[in-house]
C-alpha cells in the first residue's frame, strides 16, 4: 500500500519533469514564447496563492470536523436532492481555478461523497458570480440568465450520467 502511494507520488513528479522538458524544448525552438509564458505563469501563481491558502484551511477543517458519516449523509448515496443542492451551491461559490479543488474533492471522495455530486460540483464551477457583470456586458442579461439556468440543470444530468457510466464501467 505504502509502496503504491510512493509510486503514485513519483509519477506526479515525473509528470512535472516531462512538462518542464517539453517547455524547455518549446522555448529552444521559439525563444520569443519564453517571456509571455513566464509572465503568464507568474500571474497565475500570484492569483492562486490566496485560493491555495483557502483550500488548505478548508481541508484542515474537513479533516478536523467532518466525519465520514456526515459526508455520507449529505453527499453520499442516500443524500438525494440535498446532495445535488450542496454540489450546485458549492460549485457556484467555489473560487479559483478548477484544478485547485481536485485535492479537496479527492478527500471528500475518500470519505464517501458520490461521484455524481463531485461531477455536478465541477460543472457548476462554470458559473462565477463575481464574473457575471463582465459576462452580461459581452452577451446580455437574458443570455446569461438562460445559460446559467440550463447549466445548473445540465450539471445534475452530468452527475447522473457520470454515476451510471461508472457503475457499468467497473
Amino acid at each position: 500500500m505504502r509502496i503504491q502511494k510512493i509510486k503514485e507520488n513519483l509519477s506526479a513528479w515525473w509528470f512535472l519533469l516531462i512538462i518542464i522538458v517539453l517547455a524547455v524544448i518549446v522555448f529552444l525552438i521559439k525563444p520569443t514564447a519564453l517571456m509571455p509564458s513566464l509572465t503568464f505563469f507568474w500571474n497565475i501563481i500570484l492569483k492562486i496563492i490566496p485560493v491555495f491558502v483557502l483550500i488548505f484551511v478548508l481541508m484542515v477543517l474537513v479533516n478536523l470536523f467532518i466525519k465520514s458519516d456526515w459526508i455520507v449523509k449529505y453527499l453520499g448515496k442516500s443524500a438525494g436532492i440535498k446532495g445535488w443542492l450542496f454540489s450546485i451551491v458549492g460549485g457556484i461559490l467555489s473560487a479559483g481555478p478548477i484544478y485547485m479543488w481536485y485535492p479537496l474533492l479527492n478527500e471528500l471522495q475518500k470519505k464517501g461523497a458520490r461521484n455524481g455530486y463531485v461531477a455536478a460540483f465541477l460543472y457548476n464551477r462554470a458559473i462565477k458570480i463575481p464574473l457575471l457583470p463582465l459576462f452580461i456586458y459581452y452577451f446580455g442579461l437574458l443570455f446569461v440568465i438562460v445559460l446559467t439556468f440550463v447549466m445548473i440543470i445540465a450539471s445534475v444530468f452530468q452527475g447522473i450520467i457520470v454515476e451510471k457510466v461508472l457503475e457499468v464501467w467497473k
Binding site: F15, L16, I18, I19, I20, L22, A23, V26, A33, S37, L38, F40, F41, I44, I45, I48, Y99
Partner: peptide, 8 residues
C-alpha cells in the same frame, strides 16, 4: 505541470 501547460 498544468499551470506550465496553460502558460505555454
Amino acid at each position: 505541470g498544468v499551470i506550465v501547460l496553460i502558460s505555454l
